[in-house]
Amino acid sequence: MTDMDDARFPPLSNSLPRGERGPVGGSGAGADAGVELNGALSPLVGESGREGAPGAVLDDQANLRTYSFAYLDEQTKRMIRRAILKGIAIPGYQVPFASREMPMPYGWGTGGVQVTAAVLGPDDVLKVIDQGADDTTNAVAIRGFFQKTAGVATTTRTADATVIQTRHRIPERTLQAHQILVYQVPIPEPLRYLEPRETETRKLHGLEEYGLMHVKLYEDIARHGHIATTYAYPVKVEGRYIMDPSPTPKFDNPKMHRSKALQLFGAGREKRIYAVPPHTDVVSLDFEDHPFRIQTFKEPCALCGAEGVYLDEVILDDRGGRMFVCSDTDHCEERRAEGHRGALSGESR
Protein backbone atom coordinates (compact mmCIF):
# COMPACT_ATOMS: atom_id res chain seq x y z
CA MET A 1 0.00 0.00 0.00
CA THR A 2 1.35 3.41 -0.87
CA ASP A 3 1.43 6.37 1.42
CA MET A 4 -1.40 7.97 -0.52
CA ASP A 5 -3.58 4.95 0.05
CA ASP A 6 -2.88 5.33 3.70
CA ALA A 7 -4.13 8.84 3.59
CA ARG A 8 -7.45 8.04 2.06
CA PHE A 9 -8.23 4.54 3.16
CA PRO A 10 -6.52 4.09 6.43
CA PRO A 11 -6.27 0.67 8.02
CA LEU A 12 -7.91 0.32 11.39
CA SER A 13 -4.81 1.15 13.34
CA ASN A 14 -4.09 4.40 11.54
CA SER A 15 -7.53 5.85 11.18
CA LEU A 16 -7.15 8.32 14.00
CA PRO A 17 -4.12 9.86 15.59
CA ARG A 18 -3.38 7.89 18.72
CA GLY A 19 -4.13 10.68 21.07
CA GLU A 20 -7.65 11.02 19.73
CA ARG A 21 -8.74 7.45 19.55
CA GLY A 22 -11.69 6.26 21.44
CA PRO A 23 -11.83 2.74 22.77
CA VAL A 24 -11.60 0.49 19.76
CA GLY A 25 -12.35 -2.94 21.12
CA GLY A 26 -15.93 -3.99 20.66
CA SER A 27 -17.06 -0.67 19.30
CA GLY A 28 -18.49 0.23 15.95
CA ALA A 29 -16.73 0.40 12.67
CA GLY A 30 -17.38 1.95 9.32
CA ALA A 31 -18.98 0.11 6.48
CA ASP A 32 -18.10 0.47 2.85
CA ALA A 33 -18.25 3.86 1.17
CA GLY A 34 -18.25 5.81 4.36
CA VAL A 35 -21.47 4.47 5.75
CA GLU A 36 -20.89 3.91 9.40
CA LEU A 37 -22.21 1.21 11.56
CA ASN A 38 -23.12 2.24 14.99
CA GLY A 39 -23.92 -1.16 16.44
CA ALA A 40 -22.33 -1.49 19.83
CA LEU A 41 -21.64 2.23 19.99
CA SER A 42 -25.25 2.88 20.66
CA PRO A 43 -25.84 3.81 24.25
CA LEU A 44 -29.35 2.49 23.89
CA VAL A 45 -28.25 -1.04 23.42
CA GLY A 46 -26.53 -1.50 26.71
CA GLU A 47 -23.06 -0.10 26.36
CA SER A 48 -21.45 2.38 28.64
CA GLY A 49 -17.74 2.39 27.96
CA ARG A 50 -17.38 5.39 25.73
CA GLU A 51 -15.95 7.85 28.20
CA GLY A 52 -13.31 9.85 26.46
CA ALA A 53 -14.36 9.03 22.96
CA PRO A 54 -14.55 12.17 20.88
CA GLY A 55 -17.94 13.32 19.74
CA ALA A 56 -21.33 13.28 21.31
CA VAL A 57 -22.25 10.59 23.74
CA LEU A 58 -25.72 9.84 24.90
CA ASP A 59 -26.40 8.85 28.45
CA ASP A 60 -29.15 6.51 29.52
CA GLN A 61 -31.74 9.22 29.15
CA ALA A 62 -30.40 9.94 25.68
CA ASN A 63 -29.29 13.42 26.66
CA LEU A 64 -26.18 14.91 25.19
CA ARG A 65 -23.66 14.43 27.93
CA THR A 66 -20.29 15.34 26.54
CA TYR A 67 -19.11 16.75 23.29
CA SER A 68 -15.96 18.27 21.94
CA PHE A 69 -15.07 21.90 22.65
CA ALA A 70 -17.09 23.94 20.16
CA TYR A 71 -18.83 20.72 19.07
CA LEU A 72 -16.49 19.70 16.26
CA ASP A 73 -14.03 16.85 16.74
CA GLU A 74 -10.36 17.67 16.37
CA GLN A 75 -9.93 16.04 12.98
CA THR A 76 -12.78 18.11 11.57
CA LYS A 77 -11.34 21.28 13.06
CA ARG A 78 -7.97 20.52 11.49
CA MET A 79 -9.61 20.01 8.10
CA ILE A 80 -11.46 23.33 8.42
CA ARG A 81 -8.35 25.12 9.69
CA ARG A 82 -6.37 23.91 6.70
CA ALA A 83 -9.08 25.25 4.39
CA ILE A 84 -9.06 28.61 6.19
CA LEU A 85 -5.29 28.93 5.75
CA LYS A 86 -5.60 28.19 2.03
CA GLY A 87 -8.37 30.74 1.78
CA ILE A 88 -6.19 33.38 3.42
CA ALA A 89 -3.31 32.58 1.07
CA ILE A 90 -5.57 32.89 -2.00
CA PRO A 91 -7.87 35.79 -1.14
CA GLY A 92 -11.34 35.44 -2.62
CA TYR A 93 -10.82 31.88 -3.87
CA GLN A 94 -13.43 29.36 -2.70
CA VAL A 95 -11.67 26.47 -1.00
CA PRO A 96 -13.67 23.22 -1.02
CA PHE A 97 -13.92 21.66 2.43
CA ALA A 98 -15.60 18.56 3.78
CA SER A 99 -18.40 20.41 5.52
CA ARG A 100 -20.03 18.38 8.25
CA GLU A 101 -23.63 17.95 9.17
CA MET A 102 -24.19 20.29 12.04
CA PRO A 103 -26.96 20.18 14.60
CA MET A 104 -28.66 23.04 12.78
CA PRO A 105 -29.99 23.01 9.24
CA TYR A 106 -27.92 23.69 6.16
CA GLY A 107 -28.71 27.22 5.07
CA TRP A 108 -28.99 28.39 8.66
CA GLY A 109 -25.36 29.21 9.21
CA THR A 110 -23.62 25.85 9.28
CA GLY A 111 -20.68 27.20 7.30
CA GLY A 112 -20.20 30.15 9.60
CA VAL A 113 -20.66 27.94 12.62
CA GLN A 114 -18.00 25.51 11.42
CA VAL A 115 -15.55 28.32 10.75
CA THR A 116 -16.26 29.91 14.11
CA ALA A 117 -15.91 26.56 15.87
CA ALA A 118 -12.55 26.01 14.19
CA VAL A 119 -11.08 29.38 15.18
CA LEU A 120 -12.68 29.88 18.59
CA GLY A 121 -10.56 29.57 21.72
CA PRO A 122 -11.21 29.92 25.42
CA ASP A 123 -10.06 33.54 25.47
CA ASP A 124 -12.32 34.69 22.68
CA VAL A 125 -15.35 36.89 23.11
CA LEU A 126 -18.05 36.00 20.60
CA LYS A 127 -20.74 38.18 19.09
CA VAL A 128 -23.39 36.75 16.78
CA ILE A 129 -25.64 38.91 14.62
CA ASP A 130 -28.30 38.24 12.04
CA GLN A 131 -29.64 41.19 10.01
CA GLY A 132 -27.35 43.36 12.11
CA ALA A 133 -29.10 42.44 15.35
CA ASP A 134 -27.96 40.30 18.27
CA ASP A 135 -31.47 39.37 19.29
CA THR A 136 -32.85 37.92 16.05
CA THR A 137 -33.89 34.34 16.59
CA ASN A 138 -31.18 32.63 14.57
CA ALA A 139 -28.47 34.79 16.15
CA VAL A 140 -29.81 33.85 19.56
CA ALA A 141 -29.79 30.17 18.62
CA ILE A 142 -26.21 30.22 17.31
CA ARG A 143 -24.92 32.23 20.25
CA GLY A 144 -26.59 29.75 22.57
CA PHE A 145 -24.95 26.89 20.71
CA PHE A 146 -21.47 28.24 21.36
CA GLN A 147 -22.26 29.16 24.95
CA LYS A 148 -23.33 25.57 25.47
CA THR A 149 -20.60 23.77 23.53
CA ALA A 150 -17.63 26.08 24.08
CA GLY A 151 -18.54 27.94 27.23
CA VAL A 152 -17.11 30.97 25.51
CA ALA A 153 -17.76 34.53 26.63
CA THR A 154 -20.31 36.33 24.49
CA THR A 155 -21.12 39.96 23.99
CA THR A 156 -23.45 42.13 21.98
CA ARG A 157 -20.92 44.94 21.90
CA THR A 158 -19.04 45.04 18.61
CA ALA A 159 -16.07 46.75 20.22
CA ASP A 160 -15.62 43.98 22.80
CA ALA A 161 -15.85 41.03 20.44
CA THR A 162 -12.83 39.14 19.11
CA VAL A 163 -14.91 36.92 16.83
CA ILE A 164 -18.13 38.15 15.21
CA GLN A 165 -20.30 35.73 13.31
CA THR A 166 -22.71 37.49 11.01
CA ARG A 167 -25.51 36.88 8.62
CA HIS A 168 -26.33 39.65 6.12
CA ARG A 169 -24.59 42.62 7.75
CA ILE A 170 -21.21 44.11 8.59
CA PRO A 171 -21.30 46.09 11.85
CA GLU A 172 -21.36 49.85 11.49
CA ARG A 173 -18.45 50.31 13.88
CA THR A 174 -15.11 50.02 12.05
CA LEU A 175 -13.58 46.66 12.88
CA GLN A 176 -10.13 46.48 14.40
CA ALA A 177 -6.98 44.47 13.86
CA HIS A 178 -7.63 41.89 16.56
CA GLN A 179 -11.10 41.07 15.30
CA ILE A 180 -12.29 38.25 13.04
CA LEU A 181 -15.53 38.60 11.11
CA VAL A 182 -17.12 35.27 10.12
CA TYR A 183 -19.78 35.46 7.43
CA GLN A 184 -22.51 32.89 6.93
CA VAL A 185 -22.75 32.30 3.20
CA PRO A 186 -25.64 30.60 1.41
CA ILE A 187 -24.33 30.60 -2.19
CA PRO A 188 -20.59 31.30 -2.29
CA GLU A 189 -20.34 31.31 -6.07
CA PRO A 190 -20.88 34.81 -7.44
CA LEU A 191 -21.39 33.40 -10.92
CA ARG A 192 -23.92 30.78 -9.80
CA TYR A 193 -27.03 32.63 -10.95
CA LEU A 194 -25.46 33.14 -14.33
CA GLU A 195 -24.08 29.62 -14.68
CA PRO A 196 -25.48 26.90 -12.43
CA ARG A 197 -22.74 24.36 -13.08
CA GLU A 198 -19.82 24.22 -10.69
CA THR A 199 -17.73 22.55 -13.40
CA GLU A 200 -18.20 25.66 -15.55
CA THR A 201 -17.81 28.37 -12.92
CA ARG A 202 -14.62 26.78 -11.63
CA LYS A 203 -13.17 27.02 -15.13
CA LEU A 204 -14.22 30.65 -15.40
CA HIS A 205 -12.47 31.50 -12.12
CA GLY A 206 -9.41 29.55 -13.21
CA LEU A 207 -9.23 31.50 -16.45
CA GLU A 208 -10.18 34.77 -14.74
CA GLU A 209 -12.94 34.96 -17.31
CA TYR A 210 -15.49 37.29 -15.78
CA GLY A 211 -17.11 38.76 -18.87
CA LEU A 212 -20.38 37.04 -17.97
CA MET A 213 -20.71 39.07 -14.79
CA HIS A 214 -20.06 42.35 -16.52
CA VAL A 215 -22.57 41.50 -19.21
CA LYS A 216 -25.18 40.76 -16.56
CA LEU A 217 -24.58 44.02 -14.73
CA TYR A 218 -24.63 45.92 -17.98
CA GLU A 219 -27.88 44.31 -19.08
CA ASP A 220 -29.37 45.53 -15.79
CA ILE A 221 -28.40 49.06 -16.66
CA ALA A 222 -29.82 48.76 -20.14
CA ARG A 223 -33.10 47.38 -18.83
CA HIS A 224 -33.61 49.24 -15.56
CA GLY A 225 -31.24 52.17 -15.73
CA HIS A 226 -29.59 50.72 -12.63
CA ILE A 227 -27.48 47.76 -11.65
CA ALA A 228 -30.32 45.72 -10.17
CA THR A 229 -28.14 43.93 -7.62
CA THR A 230 -28.70 45.41 -4.20
CA TYR A 231 -27.24 42.73 -1.95
CA ALA A 232 -24.63 40.03 -2.46
CA TYR A 233 -23.12 42.60 -4.79
CA PRO A 234 -20.04 41.06 -6.43
CA VAL A 235 -16.59 42.31 -5.54
CA LYS A 236 -13.13 41.75 -6.95
CA VAL A 237 -10.53 40.80 -4.39
CA GLU A 238 -6.96 42.00 -4.80
CA GLY A 239 -7.52 42.34 -8.53
CA ARG A 240 -7.97 38.62 -9.09
CA TYR A 241 -11.02 36.70 -7.86
CA ILE A 242 -14.60 37.85 -8.15
CA MET A 243 -16.18 37.03 -4.82
CA ASP A 244 -19.64 36.92 -3.32
CA PRO A 245 -19.64 39.03 -0.16
CA SER A 246 -22.61 36.95 1.14
CA PRO A 247 -26.06 38.56 1.06
CA THR A 248 -25.01 41.74 2.81
CA PRO A 249 -26.54 44.89 1.34
CA LYS A 250 -24.16 46.60 -1.05
CA PHE A 251 -24.19 49.37 1.55
CA ASP A 252 -21.69 47.24 3.46
CA ASN A 253 -19.32 46.50 0.57
CA PRO A 254 -17.01 49.46 1.18
CA LYS A 255 -16.43 48.24 4.75
CA MET A 256 -14.69 45.17 3.37
CA HIS A 257 -12.08 47.16 1.49
CA ARG A 258 -8.75 47.19 3.32
CA SER A 259 -10.48 46.32 6.58
CA LYS A 260 -8.14 45.84 9.52
CA ALA A 261 -10.09 42.73 10.54
CA LEU A 262 -9.67 39.28 9.08
CA GLN A 263 -12.79 38.26 7.16
CA LEU A 264 -13.66 34.58 6.88
CA PHE A 265 -16.57 33.16 4.89
CA GLY A 266 -18.20 29.78 5.47
CA ALA A 267 -20.73 28.09 3.19
CA GLY A 268 -21.67 24.81 4.84
CA ARG A 269 -24.15 23.33 2.39
CA GLU A 270 -22.03 24.31 -0.58
CA LYS A 271 -18.89 23.15 1.24
CA ARG A 272 -16.76 26.20 0.58
CA ILE A 273 -14.59 28.46 2.71
CA TYR A 274 -13.00 31.69 1.56
CA ALA A 275 -11.23 34.60 3.13
CA VAL A 276 -10.14 38.18 2.84
CA PRO A 277 -7.02 38.98 4.86
CA PRO A 278 -6.71 42.36 6.56
CA HIS A 279 -5.66 45.31 4.38
CA THR A 280 -6.83 43.65 1.19
CA ASP A 281 -8.36 45.41 -1.78
CA VAL A 282 -12.04 44.58 -2.14
CA VAL A 283 -13.58 46.51 -5.00
CA SER A 284 -17.24 46.43 -6.00
CA LEU A 285 -17.70 45.85 -9.72
CA ASP A 286 -18.96 48.81 -11.68
CA PHE A 287 -18.63 50.77 -14.91
CA GLU A 288 -17.07 54.14 -15.59
CA ASP A 289 -20.42 55.61 -16.56
CA HIS A 290 -22.23 53.75 -13.77
CA PRO A 291 -19.97 53.93 -10.75
CA PHE A 292 -20.76 51.78 -7.73
CA ARG A 293 -22.95 53.62 -5.24
CA ILE A 294 -24.28 52.49 -1.90
CA GLN A 295 -27.81 52.90 -0.64
CA THR A 296 -28.71 56.13 1.11
CA PHE A 297 -31.65 56.73 3.39
CA LYS A 298 -33.71 59.91 3.35
CA GLU A 299 -34.11 60.09 7.08
CA PRO A 300 -31.92 59.26 10.08
CA CYS A 301 -32.59 56.40 12.50
CA ALA A 302 -35.83 57.15 14.34
CA LEU A 303 -34.34 55.92 17.62
CA CYS A 304 -30.79 57.25 17.72
CA GLY A 305 -30.75 59.79 14.92
CA ALA A 306 -27.81 58.13 13.18
CA GLU A 307 -27.16 59.06 9.56
CA GLY A 308 -25.09 57.16 7.06
CA VAL A 309 -26.02 53.80 8.56
CA TYR A 310 -28.18 50.99 7.19
CA LEU A 311 -31.78 51.14 8.36
CA ASP A 312 -34.59 48.62 8.79
CA GLU A 313 -38.02 49.71 7.70
CA VAL A 314 -40.63 49.02 10.35
CA ILE A 315 -44.31 49.13 9.46
CA LEU A 316 -46.20 50.81 12.26
CA ASP A 317 -49.82 50.48 11.11
CA ASP A 318 -51.87 49.66 8.05
CA ARG A 319 -52.26 53.31 7.04
CA GLY A 320 -48.79 53.76 5.59
CA GLY A 321 -47.15 54.56 8.90
CA ARG A 322 -43.55 53.47 8.96
CA MET A 323 -40.27 54.27 10.58
CA PHE A 324 -36.64 53.58 9.87
CA VAL A 325 -34.32 52.32 12.61
CA CYS A 326 -30.73 51.13 12.75
CA SER A 327 -30.28 47.57 11.53
CA ASP A 328 -27.15 47.37 13.72
CA THR A 329 -28.77 47.17 17.16
CA ASP A 330 -25.51 47.50 19.08
CA HIS A 331 -24.62 50.65 17.20
CA CYS A 332 -28.06 52.09 17.93
CA GLU A 333 -27.94 51.23 21.63
CA GLU A 334 -24.46 52.63 21.99
CA ARG A 335 -25.51 55.89 20.41
CA ARG A 336 -28.58 56.16 22.61
CA ALA A 337 -26.43 55.46 25.66
CA GLU A 338 -24.30 58.37 24.55
CA GLY A 339 -27.41 60.55 24.58
CA HIS A 340 -28.28 60.60 20.87
CA ARG A 341 -32.00 60.66 20.22
CA GLY A 342 -34.15 60.12 17.16
CA ALA A 343 -37.58 61.38 16.22
CA LEU A 344 -39.45 58.43 17.77
CA SER A 345 -37.22 57.59 20.70
CA GLY A 346 -39.85 58.90 23.07
CA GLU A 347 -37.52 61.18 24.94
CA SER A 348 -36.63 64.75 24.26
CA ARG A 349 -33.15 65.54 23.09
Partner: peptide, 9 residues
Protein backbone atom coordinates in the same frame (compact mmCIF):
# COMPACT_ATOMS: atom_id res chain seq x y z
CA UNK B 1 -21.01 13.37 12.19
CA UNK B 2 -19.67 13.38 15.75
CA UNK B 3 -18.79 9.69 15.79
CA UNK B 4 -15.16 8.64 15.65
CA UNK B 5 -14.24 6.49 12.69
CA UNK B 6 -12.44 3.29 13.56
CA UNK B 7 -12.12 1.76 10.14
CA UNK B 8 -13.77 0.71 6.92
CA UNK B 9 -15.58 -2.50 6.16
Amino acid sequence: TTLPRFGFS
